[in-house]
Every structure is written in C-alpha cells, then in structure tokens.
C-alpha cells in the first residue's frame, strides 16, 4: 500500500504535463528514473517464489508494474551476477526454461531494501502531506 505513494503521486500529476512535449520528455525521464529502483525491489519481491522469465513478466504486469523483456532479462542477469538470484535451466512443458529465485544473500539484501524503502516512503508521505 505504502509502496505506491511515489508512483501514484506522479501519475496523478502527469496529466498537467501532457500538452508541452518538452515537459512530457522531462516527466518521462523522471518517471523512468523513479521506476528503475522500484522495479528491482518488485522483481526481488516476485522471486521469493521461483519463476521463469515469461511468467515473471506476466506477474509483474498483473501487479501493475509492466516491464519489457529488454529491461527484465538484463536486470535478472545483473542481479544474478551480484549474487542476489540463483537460476537453473529446467524442462517444463517440453521446453527448456530458466528458473530464477532469491538466493540467501538476495533474501538478506531484499529485507534491507524493504526497510530502506519504508523509510523513504515515510519521509515522502510526510513531505507530501505538508504541501
């Protein structure tokens, strides 16, 4: 619930920017910057249970955070290189699929990230309600 504060805030105000192409670009860049960190947390959160790439994408889309494959797969590789995810190739429905899940280190870091996220959210809520 609290995790959506920033996104909701920006989406609420996005209609004000639509007329000017320059400000639309600015908004789009800021939106992407804002999303970048959120997506990492969302992906880590989704991978508490094992999934392969396509189902992960679907799950993210269903949760309201669509992510294109060009962003998702390189991100998964990066997180795996950093030791936050583990993966294995397995056959399912007669096709080889790569399944990802959080590693022990990933679980630890994810917990820290959630704490940090909640602190940021609390601060933002305070700032935004002051306005």
């Amino acid at each position: 619930m609290r995790h959506t504060v920033c996104i909701a805030y920006y989406m609420k105000n996005s209609s004000n920017h639509s007329s000017n192409p320059a400000s639309t670009d600015v908004f789009e860049n800021l939106r992407l910057e804002l999303r970048r960190g959120c997506l990492i947390i969302a992906v880590l959160g989704q991978l508490k249970t094992e999934r392969y790439g396509y189902t992960l994408r679907k799950a993210m889309e269903d949760a309201g955070l669509p992510i294109d494959e060009g962003t998702l797969y390189p991100l998964l590789r990066r997180l795996e290189t950093q030791g936050l995810l583990v993966s294995e190739w397995r056959e399912e429905d007669k096709r080889n699929k790569r399944f990802y899940r959080l590693s022990a280190e990933g679980k630890r870091i994810f917990k820290q990230l959630i704490e940090e996220w909640e602190n940021i959210n609390a601060s933002l809520e305070q700032i935004l309600t002051e306005e």
């Binding site: 797969y73 190739w89 699929k97 790569r98």
Partner: peptide, 17 residues
Amino acid sequence: TQKRDILAELSEDIRSQ
C-alpha cells in the same frame, strides 16, 4: 561467452509470447 545462454532465454520468451 554469454551468447548461447542469452539467446536460449530470449528464444524461450518469444515462443511463450
């Protein structure tokens, strides 16, 4: 070094789609 792995995953994603 990563070509095979990336292409296998990409191929799987396209076929699922």
